[in-house]
Amino acid sequence: MTNESIWVYIQLNQDKIEPTSLQLLTKAKQIAEDKPVWAILLEPTTLTAEATIQQYGPDNILRLRDDRFAAATDEELADALEQVVTQYNPNSFLFPATTAGRSLAPRLQAKLQTGLTADCLDLAFDGDTLVQVKPTYGDNIMCDIICPDRRPQMATVRPNIFKAVRVPNSQTEVVSATFTFHPETTMTILNTTRLISQTASLSDAQTVIALGRGANQPKTIELARQLAAKMGGVVGVTRPLTDDPQFTHDQQIGQSGQTVAPDLLINLGISGAVQYTVGIQNANRIVSVNTDATAPIFADSDYGYVGDATEFLEGLLAQVK
């Protein structure tokens, strides 16, 4: 018997909940109609993530506890998940399309012999069928994918596409799962070093100053840094600028970089290729400066200025408090 619940995998990055998992709880509740939403939590006993998860309103938290989850391999996680999926038979199972999610979900998919759609940008139910919207060809083309005959319907979903909304649910029931932890004997995690991540600050930032190839002069970059410091924001870049050793891939915005969702985004010297603009769709207000009045970036902007990026930056630095 299929239980019609929608499952969301709660990814833990050491002791922190991956924000995408909370975003997925909100999205699952929005599309659920009357299907219950379950948060699936694999947690060491030193942690209690339940209270935070409950803030996002799932009907159930299915908790698998074992201290070895503090540093478990993909195989160990997939094995534990397989055990609970076959006990409860959920309708669908959503994962963050993070490094961890994209490693774990396909391993589980193969165990369960079901379908998995990668890196979805949207999800909706058509009856019991989950319609999964997935970009391909470098986000140039969208497609709808379904998995009509097998369960669960699995998907990984791109970070920061949906906003996590707090709707505390006092009815959330925490269920302890029965499972056996099977250690993977041929693999050892030697160490995990937390990165002081610019990624996190870029995807969480409320103000982002983004630089493109038309704003790659040392002076321009320096001014952008000063402005970011003054406004409490961070600097992001387009892909060509990651060739400059002072920027890393972590600062890249776009399809193969980060998705940003700031209140204010200022694009300087950026043409507006689709691989870039897909990463800025969730920015609230977008200001773009480009010397070329026909640059496609203006079509994605709330405010535009045809002119030199450096001069505009100087103007901002002088006038912003």
Binding site: K16, T73, T99, A100, I189, L190, T192, T193, R194, L195
Partner: peptide, 12 residues
């Protein structure tokens, strides 16, 4: 390279 961490692993 993980989401907020770097990891070293050894496999047989």
């Amino acid at each position: 390279r993980l989401d907020a961490a770097e990891q070293e692993v050894e496999v047989e």
